[in-house]
């Protein structure tokens, strides 16, 4: 859906559901997922429908993901960090995660 204008800036290695993804400095989690061509980042707690980032400006909450073991983080507001573990959030969040 998106490509990078230029592969500039230092690469940052993160994992998405255990898979290695190369992000760039300046990426948010949501942007890194889009750049990596990941189709959806969560399924809804109501019907299990797949969702992907929608607004990228912190209002829609469709980019909720589990980041480093903590669920329901807004992917579009969180800058990537080296070694960050991002997980697709399936349905309702599990308490304690």
């Amino acid at each position: 859906m998106f490509k990078r204008l230029a592969e500039k800036g230092p690469a940052i290695a993160i994992t998405v559901d255990g898979r290695k993804v190369t992000a760039r400095v300046g990426d948010t989690v949501a942007a890194a997922l889009l750049a990596a061509g990941i189709d959806h980042c969560r399924t809804t707690p109501v019907t299990g429908a797949p969702r992907a980032p929608y607004c990228l400006m912190g209002v829609c909450f469709d980019c909720l993901v589990t980041v480093d073991g903590v669920g329901s983080r807004q992917g579009c507001l969180i800058p990537v960090r080296e070694g960050m573990k991002v997980e697709t959030q399936l349905g309702r969040r599990e308490a304690g995660r």
């Binding site: 859906m1 998106f2 490509k3 990078r4 204008l5 230029a6 500039k8 760039r24 300046g26 990426d27 948010t28 942007a31 889009l34 750049a35 990228l56 400006m57 579009c76």
Partner: peptide
């Protein structure tokens, strides 16, 4: 936003 912040183009 993706274009401005991350240089991502459709």
């Amino acid at each position: 936003t993706a274009l401005k912040a991350q240089g991502l183009v459709v």
